[in-house]
Simulated scan of single mutants.
Amino acid sequence: MNQYYKDYLIRSWEKHHRIPASEVIRCVLAEYGLGWEPDGADKDVLQIEECYLATGGEFWVVEYQNQVVGTGAYYPILRGQKAVEIRKMYLLPQVRGFGVGKYLLQQLEETIKKRGFEQIWIETASVLVEAVRLYENNGYKAATGVETARCDRVYVKKLGVRS
């Protein structure tokens, strides 16, 4: 992945992105009063190779003026039918409101669909109001079975099916 949206570059994760990507996620979590969990829910960010690349997933970063300002990722999961989970979709506050999140979500969906997956699952927390709105406005339906402790919402979207 190497694609521009306005002045933002969405690109595939490389090793030198590990710390900047972690910092973006840590900052956004703190902004909403959620904790950084390097031994729990955020362990995957420190182990991109094992958790994403080796499992058939992808991890992307969003750069603005050569700085990592956002992240987005997915990997295959056993829940549902030919399913993936979108994870770690975070944008720093200064880059929100310009359509970057919606564009990033659309690019993730297109890539996932091209790879033959049929369902996308997303877990989030109600306090992440912008994320909840983004998912609900883009065809994600509330589901049950939250698996991440700090999350209280789970959504699913069937690809190729209009809602």
Results as ranks from 00 to 15, higher is better:
K6P: 10
Y8A: 02
W13R: 03
W13S: 06
H17V: 14
I19Y: 08
A21H: 07
A21G: 05
I25T: 12
R26V: 04
R26S: 14
L29F: 03
Y32Q: 07
G33P: 08
D39I: 08
D42K: 06
K43L: 07
K43H: 13
D44I: 05
L46Y: 10
E49D: 14
C51P: 00
C51T: 08
Y52V: 06
Y52I: 13
Y52K: 03
L53K: 11
T55Q: 15
T55D: 05
G56T: 02
G56V: 03
G57V: 09
G57E: 08
F59D: 06
V68W: 09
V68Q: 06
V69W: 09
T71M: 06
A73S: 15
P76H: 06
P76S: 07
R79V: 03
E85Q: 13
M89E: 14
L91C: 05
P93C: 13
V95G: 13
G97H: 04
G99A: 12
G99S: 07
V100K: 05
L105A: 09
Q106H: 12
L108A: 11
E110C: 11
E110Y: 11
T111D: 14
I112K: 02
I112V: 15
K113R: 14
K114S: 13
R115K: 14
G116N: 10
F117D: 02
E123T: 09
S126K: 08
V127H: 06
L128R: 06
E130K: 10
E130Y: 07
V132D: 03
Y135P: 08
Y140M: 05
Y140H: 02
A142Q: 10
A143W: 10
G145Y: 00
V146T: 12
V146E: 02
D152W: 00
R153Y: 07
R153G: 01
V156H: 06
V156M: 05
V156Y: 01
K157D: 00
L159R: 01
